[in-house]
Computed example of a mutant assay.
Amino acid sequence: MNTESWDIINQGGLRYFGDMTASISHEIKNCLAIMNENAGLLQDLLAAVQTGRQLDLNQIDQISNRITKQIYRIDDITKRMNVFSHSVDLPEKTIDVGEVLNLAVLLGSRIASNRMIEIKLILPKHKIFLSTQFFFLLHLVWLIMDSTMTAVGPDKTMEIKPVDQISELKISFCSQGNIKKGFESILCSQAAQKTMKTLSAQLIFSETDNEIILKVAKKTQG
């Protein structure tokens, strides 16, 4: 990475990494707490059997299923964390935009849930590919999500929708609230401005549709 890229990471990227890592660790801790609780129930059942109580196989099966569910959940979380941790490996790569947006939503899901906000990701039927810097796009999407969530409407819902165009990728962030405040706060973010410059991106606000639109220019071939 060049000096400017590291400057962007130092300004906001490290904080983003820290915030998301903390959120992921909380999710894993919640899974472990549920598993520990169910392990305790198993121990109670075994202790009861030792005193002569009949073994309840149905209850054991239910406990086992709850533990298995958390194991799968932790597996999904660690896979997500692995993709996130490697997002800075290459300065530029061809990415599946839908996968990046889905990762951004999943990483921020706990924070959104704590704010009682539902994030709806609306993807097209066809995949959208873009040659760009994975981590910077991921971080920029989160900055917009975070700012938009501070101004969502009473329905507590935000929609994210990518649109593939000939010369650029458009990602819209919509809500019923006064999200123009979120748009204005992003414009004041030096980290966001530098990231947009690096990605050849720009941010606009549509008064008509009450949406924030991120435009990322596509790389020309040759």
Rank of each mutant, 00 (worst) to 15 (best):
E4H: 06
S5E: 07
W6E: 09
I8Q: 00
I9K: 00
R15L: 08
Y16D: 08
Y16A: 00
M20Y: 05
T21L: 00
H26K: 14
H26R: 13
K29T: 15
A33F: 12
I34F: 04
I34Q: 07
M35C: 08
A39Q: 05
G40P: 07
D44Q: 13
D44V: 01
V49N: 09
L55G: 07
N58D: 09
I60W: 09
N65M: 09
R66G: 01
I67M: 11
I67A: 03
Q70G: 05
I71L: 10
I77K: 11
K79D: 15
R80A: 02
S85T: 13
S87I: 02
L90S: 05
K93E: 15
I95L: 15
E99L: 09
N102V: 04
V105D: 13
L107P: 12
L107S: 14
G108S: 15
S109P: 05
R110C: 01
S113N: 11
R115T: 02
I122F: 07
P124D: 04
H126D: 15
I128E: 11
T132E: 04
Q133R: 15
F134T: 07
F134N: 13
F135N: 12
L137N: 10
L140D: 13
D146S: 10
A151R: 03
V152C: 12
G153W: 01
E159L: 09
V163S: 09
S167K: 13
E168K: 10
I171S: 06
S172N: 08
S172Y: 05
N178L: 10
K180G: 04
G182E: 12
F183Q: 07
I186P: 07
K194A: 00
A201P: 04
A217P: 01
K218D: 07
K219L: 07
